[in-house]
Each structure stands twice: as C-alpha cells, then as structure tokens.
C-alpha cells in the first residue's frame, strides 16, 4: 500500500479515536479467521472471480491493521461489537444474520464504531482484493495498463 493511501486510511480511523492513548493500549491480535469470514461476506466467490480469502486478502489486511495502533484499535472495537450484537459470537451466527449485521453497519453513523469500522474494513478489503489479477477476471481490463496501454478505437 502506498504511503499516501496508508495516510488516508489512518486519517479515516483517527477522529473516532480522539482521546485514545496508544501508549496505554493492550492490543489483542485481530484474528485471521474472523477477518477471513468478513472479507468473504464482502467479496464472495462468483462465477468469474474467487472469494477474498482465497486471495489471502485477510492475511494482508491483518498485516496492515496490526502495523498501526489506531487501525488495530478500531478493528478491535469493531470485532468486539460484531461479537456482541448478535447475542453470540459472530462466527457462530447463520450467514443470513451475519449479512444483516453488516448491512446495518454499512448504513450506520460514520462517527460511531460500527459505521467507521465497516467503512474502513470494506475500503481496505476492496483495495487489496482488486489489486489481484484473479479479481479482475472478466473486466474489460488488462492485468496492468502497461505495456500495451489501451490504444483506440474505443467505441
């Protein structure tokens, strides 16, 4: 992830954590299994492209999250919320309920944990997923814009 994109993410995570002192924080590791399920709910397998976890999106995501305290804390809060909101651990809920919870988070106030967490999670998952060649199978795109470019005609 480029420096500027990383800075943008941190800026997104930061305002929600006003008053939070990273020096005092205890970071629980953000679990890969949990992240794998979440990224697959956002980016499931379809006829042309694999699910996010098959491309190890959750592994890369975890690396980025754990490399920055503010992001790690946002994810910690977000995952705790997910585990509480359905009355039992998120991973034990039926998939339809999991999707319903994510739907709720996707509409939630950006200035509260569920809304901010989901927005950042989705953004990062998409950023990582669509950077993989397998993810853009079936798009009118080359794996990369060069060396061929897109010579005309276009219409």
């Amino acid at each position: 992830m480029s420096l500027n994109r990383r800075k943008a993410l941190i800026t997104m995570a930061a305002p929600f954590l006003v008053g939070f002192d990273p020096a005092e924080a205890q970071f629980a590791p953000v679990g890969q299994r949990f992240l794998g399920k979440l990224v697959d709910l956002i980016l499931p397998q379809d006829a042309q492209s694999p699910a996010a976890s098959a491309l190890f999106v959750h592994v890369e995501l975890q690396e980025v999250v754990q490399s920055h305290e503010l992001l790690a804390r946002l994810f910690e809060y977000g995952l705790s919320w997910l585990d509480q909101v359905g009355g039992r651990p998120f991973l034990d809920l039926p998939e339809a309920v999991q999707i319903e919870i994510l739907q709720f988070a996707s509409q939630a106030d950006f200035n509260q944990v569920p809304g901010r967490f989901f927005a950042v999670l989705r953004l990062m998952a998409c950023d990582i997923y669509f950077s993989k060649a397998e993810a853009i199978e079936g798009y009118p795109l080359q794996v990369a814009p060069q060396p061929e470019g897109y010579p005309p005609p276009w219409s």
Binding site: I42, D46, Q48, S106, L123, C126
Partner: peptide, 28 residues
C-alpha cells in the same frame, strides 16, 4: 476511475455477490 478500486470505493455502494455483479455491470 480507471480501475475497479476507484469504482468500489467511490461509485458502487454495497457488498456481497449482487454487488460484485453490479461492479462488473457498471465498470467503464
């Protein structure tokens, strides 16, 4: 807006299988 990340993060809201289909339909 030359690639799918731009579409996913700015233009096409949602998630899940139906959203992935929307992404393909709108791309370009």
């Amino acid at each position: 807006l030359g690639g799918p990340i731009g579409y996913a993060t700015r233009m096409v809201p949602g998630f899940g299988a139906a959203w992935k289909a929307q992404m393909r339909a709108h791309f370009g």
